[in-house]
Amino acid sequence: MATLITVFYKYSGKERDKLTLSKGELRDLLSSEMGNILGKSQDKPALDKIFKDLDANKDGTVDFQEYITLVACITMFCNEFFQK
């Protein structure tokens, strides 16, 4: 749990609010921390879709709760992959 929290705050606030991730901060987090799990985070259409899907309240940022949604989805994907 501490690692998930630390990773979020490592990237949040570089561009704006310390409590949220901008699209650029999310891109940096995905490429640095999650490597190839989500494919190429430099792929702008893919990044736009991920960001849009995560931004549940449509405020143009990803807050911690929305970030945890990403973590949960990746965990479920990995679980399904390893069950095969």
Rank of each mutant, 00 (worst) to 15 (best):
F64G: 02
D59L: 02
Q83C: 15
K49F: 15
K84E: 13
L70R: 01
F77T: 04
K14P: 01
F81T: 13
M1W: 13
D59I: 00
T69E: 10
K23R: 05
K52W: 11
F77M: 09
F81G: 09
T69D: 07
A72N: 06
I74R: 01
F77P: 00
V62F: 02
D48P: 00
V62I: 13
K58F: 07
L29Y: 07
T20N: 01
F81C: 14
K23I: 11
S12D: 01
A46P: 12
D28C: 10
A46R: 10
S22D: 08
K10R: 10
K84C: 15
L54K: 04
E15T: 11
Q42D: 11
A72Y: 05
K23H: 04
S41R: 11
M1R: 09
L30V: 10
F77S: 03
I50F: 15
S31L: 04
F82K: 11
Y11K: 00
N79V: 15
F81W: 13
G13M: 01
G60E: 08
V7R: 03
K58H: 12
K18E: 03
R16E: 10
K10W: 06
L54D: 03
A72K: 05
L4I: 02
F82C: 08
G35C: 10
I37V: 15
T75G: 04
D63C: 08
P45H: 01
K14T: 08
T20V: 09
I5T: 10
G13T: 05
D55P: 11
L19R: 06
K14S: 07
S22C: 03
E15R: 04
T6W: 14
L21I: 03
S22Q: 06
I37C: 08
T3S: 07
N36Y: 12
K44N: 09
E80T: 15
I50Q: 14
K44T: 09
T69F: 09
G13I: 13
L4P: 08
D48L: 10
T3V: 13
V71Q: 02
K44C: 10
